[in-house]
């Protein structure tokens, strides 16, 4: 029996990749300009929601479309497809009034991570 991964299929696999973006028609809950708060949740399992944004308020700047939800998919608990948004936080919102007033941080938030603010 040949191995699952053979040299012949490597170039195609590498160049093709495996996007987790999927063409599912799901209505987005948020849009460009919406103020959102990153939820203060503390999963003990896989998550893409870093602690430093939890509880902080930012602005949706882009809707990337629908992606497989890592938090559930990593544990074989379903793909739970949902919109992923790029959200802009000011450095002062994240780190307090001593942070430089112009600086910002952009991060990609699954819809499950955010709520209206």
């Amino acid at each position: 029996m040949p191995a699952a991964l053979t040299p012949e299929i490597v170039p195609g696999l590498v160049a093709g990749g495996a996007s987790t973006k999927i063409a599912e028609d799901i209505a987005p809950k948020f849009k460009h300009g919406d103020k959102v708060r990153a939820r203060n949740i503390n999963p003990t399992t896989h998550t893409r929601l870093p602690r430093y944004v939890r509880g902080k308020v930012g602005t949706v700047v882009h809707d990337h479309g629908v992606f497989v939800f890592n938090d559930s998919n990593a544990h074989g608990k379903g793909t739970h497809p949902q919109h992923v948004y790029n959200v802009r936080f000011t450095a002062q919102e994240l780190w307090g009034p001593d942070a430089p007033s112009r600086d910002t941080l952009h991060i990609d938030m699954f819809e499950s991570y955010i709520e209206p603010a």
Binding site: R48, L49, F67, N70, V84, D108
Partner: peptide, 15 residues
Amino acid sequence: PETVEVRVWDSNAEL
């Protein structure tokens, strides 16, 4: 310079 915005991108998800 202080007059320029530093914009950090955290590639935490699939982008």
